[in-house]
């Protein structure tokens, strides 16, 4: 089978389990983002795939071959470290050519490949520069080129963009994604940043406490989070309590939401609804009545905080659909049932 198969991999440090029986299938050519809070085991998982950390149990299978017993240097992968780990004593060209030099490639071959890669990362003619004299974004690109020198089967990156400023980071996200699509290389990126994951990934893997909580395409993760943790971690969401009332209707904060069905046999659950799906209007009718406590006008979007019986609901609107609200006003909150995701109790 083509692609990467992670088979019930576990890593314990003493009696602390950093990665707990993680299973994941990554088809060939997929861009995966590993997402999760600090300390959830993302780096540990990536390092096990790279062979830099030995799994306590489980197996890693690449294109049908079990690579678990292989040492790092025989795995044919490219890795970009958070610190970039460029060799300070080598020039840009020598850094990129390092893998080729190890394989005993001829000088001409090395030179040709370095030029190819420098063109790929938009830094032509940089081969003779010392790495110390590069800017942050340039160093980033050199690290990427170095990792790709041997056209590896697997491309691993651990928070590669975290050292860059916000603007450059966004540009590099797009660039990295385009590069990956052009090369069609299976790529796994660890990140803290859900926007980054949404920008780049084919498959977002959300981790928490050493486990995979959900692995799905970005829009599905966003629209149909598997649980409250994922819903809360990916973007901003409203987590509201839902109940079946005596008449058998589903209610949120005491107001019936026609068309919202609860799973059979569940009387209480929490419901996630994205702020942009929450509509504000006149109080009364079927809407939930609440009071506006705060309005944040960011220019591009307007966030309105509405308090309903002690629970705060955030609604986001664009200036075009500008809701006519002000702090202290009483408004009606409408939750479209098709946008509500019922999560576990």
């Amino acid at each position: 089978m083509s692609g990467l198969d992670i088979n019930a991999i576990t890593k314990t440090f003493g009696n602390f389990t950093a990665v707990d029986k993680v299973r994941l299938n990554v088809p060939h050519g997929t861009f995966v983002c590993l997402l999760g809070p600090s300390g959830c085991g993302k780096t540990t998982l990536l390092r096990m795939i790279a062979g830099l950390e030995e799994p306590t149990s489980g197996a890693i299978v690449l294109d049908g071959d079990d690579i678990t017993p292989l040492p790092t240097h025989k795995r044919n992968l490219g890795m970009v470290f958070q610190s970039l780990a460029l060799f300070p004593h080598l020039s840009v060209g020598d850094n990129i050519a390092y893998a080729l030099r190890i394989r005993g490639a001829s000088k001409e071959e090395q030179k040709k490949r370095v030029e190819e890669l420098l063109a790929l990362i938009h830094l032509p003619g940089f081969a003779d520069r010392p790495v110390a004299k590069l800017s942050g974004g340039q160093r980033q690109r050199v690290a990427i080129a170095r990792a790709l020198a041997l056209s590896p089967k697997l491309f691993l990156l651990d928070e590669p963009l975290s050292a860059l400023d916000a603007k450059l980071r966004e540009a590099m996200q797009v660039e990295l994604r385009q590069l990956q699509q052009r090369l069609g290389i299976t790529t796994i990126v660890v990140t803290h940043d859900q926007r980054e994951a949404m920008t780049m990934a084919d498959l977002v893997v959300v981790m928490g406490h050493g486990r995979i909580l959900q692995a799905a395409p970005p829009i599905e993760i966003y629209r149909k989070p598997a649980d409250a943790f994922v819903a809360d971690f990916i973007g901003i969401t409203n987590l509201l309590p839902a109940e079946i009332d005596s008449a058998g209707r589903t209610t949120i904060l005491g107001t019936a939401i026609p068309g919202l069905a609860m799973p059979v046999g569940v009387a209480k659950a929490s419901v996630s609804i994205r702020p942009e799906d929450v509509h504000l209007g006149e109080a009364g009718g079927r809407a939930i009545t609440g009071q506006v406590t705060f309005v944040r006008d960011l220019g591009g979007t307007i966030e309105t905080f509405v308090e309903v019986g002690g629970t705060s609901i955030i609604a986001v609107a664009t200036p075009r659909e500008r809701p006519n609200v002000s702090v202290g006003a009483t408004v009606g909150v409408t939750l479209p049932p098709e946008s509500c995701v019922v999560l576990g109790p």
Binding site: L52, H73, K74, A85, I102, R146
Partner: peptide, 9 residues
């Protein structure tokens, strides 16, 4: 580690 991922023992 970077050197090892690049194929160096």
């Amino acid at each position: 580690e970077a050197a090892r991922t690049l194929g160096a023992s």
